[in-house]
Design a protein around this nucleic acid. Structure first.
Lengths: 216, 216
DNA sequence: CGGATATTTGACCGATTGGTAAACATTACA
DNA sequence: TGTAATGTTTACCAATCGGTCAAATATCCG
């Protein structure tokens, strides 16, 4: 048959739907844990519970799997930033953005690590997405933040570096999870660490962005 | 022959000194860019400008290279945190810690990425270092920060998450460099981005940690 | 110099890599 | 039910992987 291979048919079968799901789930497991180059098709096949050629029947190459995964995850990943509302209350918008990003780090650590691995190794497969859609979205939201700062609702600050800081601090709990656990030790490495992190980060960002009451 | 292989001799020759240096330099290049599993001995050999067997004459395995590299870099990497002085002025200590970490991200991005790759993929080679020396150092400095908070010199906050935040925000500029550049665009992706980042992060952390003047 | 020691290399090894070919099994549907 | 389309597997491929070995070469030092 081979819709995936030749797209002879237009509709996708139930089996296709299921198997592709299975494969991408397994691929997420493997790619996020070992990076693209460090992963092998055999590993993905084993996790997915199917043979290698079977897997290659649905995705012709290792790259195709990776690409499908990236495409699927990228949109979801930017959802919290997209929800950033220019009309909302600045303090509350920032607070909820932090909370959402932290929830994603907690609930979807593999997705976070997938991107981290990719970007860390030079983003060879997603350079276009970074320079295109991502940059545009960030530019737009940076403008919102700049406007807030200008009108005195928050402190004057560089909106890009603010966004970078929220990204890095929140994703840290997914990407550097083993380090966080190791440092916190068994006593504090339970799920409570996300609540502690949320409390600290809100304090940090809300405090750090409080508009200057004195005239600097 | 073969000090590295059998340690028959006690002194290391000049050639050994030089070649090992050359190899580790090349290994840093490759490992930091592709992760341990994604790297090959051949790649390192090519960057080092020598043959693969020659390289394996100095380091018997790929793992040995990686371990030597980690060991060498780890100490240096924790230097800024070690310099954190309990007797100093809190605000100034935090400010200079941020600045130092940011300088390291700028001047030694490969070292940062080496660790990031390692930790991201579950820290299979440095788990002991994380749970031992790293945790101890962080515990010690966290106590310092806690004391500052208790005496009202800075705001009450979770010292561990404060340290995580400084780590993540500063290392972000090394580890996610391509993303930062992509988002900032060509206009703002020059070296000035580190100064902008420093300015923003100091504002964020100093502001966010300013002791409560009102009684919460 | 000359011999001992240290360094370097080309040829090679078995295992694993990403991927293919074709036979075989299953499913959907007229 | 029959058959064409779809799905799965076994056997295999060339390339690359980490690593070895013996022979060749360079260096050191008396």
């Amino acid at each position: 048959m081979a819709i995936p291979r030749a797209a002879k048919t237009l509709r996708r079968t139930r089996i296709q739907e299921e198997k592709e799901e299975q494969i991408l789930e397994a691929a997420l497991d493997v790619f996020s844990a070992r990076g693209f180059r460090g992963s092998t098709i055999d590993q993905i096949a084993e996790v997915a519970g199917m043979s290698k050629p079977n897997l290659l029947y649905y995705f012709r190459t290792k790259e195709a799997m990776h690409r499908a995964l990236i495409d699927r995850v990228l949109y979801t990943w930017l959802e919290p930033l997209r929800a950033f509302d220019a009309e909302g209350n600045p303090e509350e918008e920032i607070r909820s953005y932090i909370r959402r990003k932290l929830e994603m780090a907690r609930d979807f650590p593999r997705e976070s690590r997938l991107f981290a691995n990719e970007v860390l190794q030079g983003a060879p497969h997603i350079e276009d997405e970074l320079k295109g859609p991502l940059k545009e979205l960030v530019d737009e939201k940076a403008e919102v933040i700049r406007a807030w700062a200008k009108s005195g609702k928050i402190a004057k600050c560089d909106p890009y570096h603010l966004i970078f800081s929220i990204w890095s601090t929140t994703q840290h709990y997914a990407d550097f999870d083993v380090q966080v656990r190791a440092v916190l030790g068994q006593e504090h490495a339970g799920d409570g660490r996300f609540e502690d992190a949320a409390r600290f980060l809100e304090q940090l960002f809300i405090g750090g962005l409080r508009p200057d009451t004195s005239g600097t």
